[in-house]
Design a protein around this nucleic acid. Structure first.
Lengths: 193, 193
DNA sequence: ATTACTATTTGATCTATGTCAAATAATCAT
DNA sequence: ATGATTATTTGACATAGATCAAATAGTAAT
């Protein structure tokens, strides 16, 4: 079996946090399968419990919710990151978040049951989850600071840094709602540079 | 030995996420010790690596950083929560956050080395950490939403909900910097109700 | 108790950003 | 390609909240 090659980016990702044994690799390979989404395709419906986690290899997904009839972007996710609806996924309950594809996207899908199996049989997976959540935690704290005390322009610059590989591929309206400013303001900020 | 009683709130906290064996209880009891801080006392200096995590049993701690010479509150922590400087604690490096006591505070202190020992010998501790971080994660996401799209008044109301047990014990200036609004605005909001 | 210091309130402006509206520009479907 | 949606830009105006300044109120130290 030579099909482990596409799994390399996932293994690399894990190896930022833990050592990945061959046994774990083979379990991961067995349980993770490739999926594709086309641009605009819905990945997760908010009226649904999120039972899958996706590791993106190509493309961009957007997590958003609806407020007063408008789509508000919670965050964007790009290559080599896991995406799911965190509370829904962990607590097996519905949450407000939709996920869709901003571009045609290739990802690796892991079901919650399989993840639970891995947690139960590979304690290092628990450690991986704890450590990787720690780094996400740091990003959230940074983002909170960036939102609280900065002008619309500074927010946009922070966004460009955070998403420097992909920011130019994201429609203006989605960026504006992510930043909590209006499209018009964002458009003017872009224009003046 | 009958001194395990004051540890009960900690055990209860853990039992929200995992089962706590007697063996784990005795290890926790051995490794956690009670500490006290007086009002205004510095708990963590930003020029320092955070090596301790505190579980508060009484009082309020404040995590803040300095921006343009001003103290900006990152968050408040009250009874039955763990406090540390997350990135500093996990990555053993300096970060920007100070922690001090808003009131006289009693807490239980766990050193990072002891925590690491527990992670290594009790896989359920890894699971506890993963799950409890998950719920903190949810709060951060909520807070981000609350900051992005609401008026100063709504922010203050969200703050009151989040900290309903303690919000009235926190000085106005600290609340204002937590919310990212000026003291004057906050004062006016309070007045009009 | 009295003084000094710190925190909060109140008032008068000012400004960044929102809102509403309309004009372009870009993208999509036939 | 052509027309129909949809996204972005531009303009005029409104406003929440910031800033600056000064008056109270509250707290702590002698």
């Amino acid at each position: 079996m030579n099909s482990t090659e596409p799994m390399e980016p996932i293994f690399d990702h894990f190896e930022n946090y833990i050592e990945v044994s061959n046994e774990l690799k083979s379990e991961l390979t067995k349980r993770i399968k490739e999926v594709h989404f086309r641009k605009s395709e819905l990945v997760l419906d908010a009226n649904t419990i999120c039972t899958k986690s996706y590791f993106i290899s190509e493309g961009i997904l957007r997590t958003y919710f609806i407020k007063d009839g408008l789509e508000i972007t919670e965050y964007f996710s790009a290559s080599y990151e896991w995406v799911n609806s965190p509370k829904s996924f962990i607590l097996k309950q519905k949450d407000i978040y939709y996920i869709d594809a901003i571009e045609n996207t290739t990802a690796y899908c892991l079901e919650i049951e399989d993840l639970m199996y891995l947690f139960d049989h590979f304690p290092e997976m628990e450690r991986y989850a704890r450590l990787s959540m720690g780094s996400v935690f740091g990003h959230l704290m940074e983002r909170i600071t960036s939102i609280r005390f900065t002008s619309a322009k500074d927010k946009y610059e922070h966004f460009q840094k955070t998403y420097h590989d992909i920011y130019h591929r994201i429609p203006l309206g989605m960026v504006a709602s992510y930043l909590g400013i209006t499209q018009e303001t964002l458009s003017r900020i872009r224009a003046e540079k």
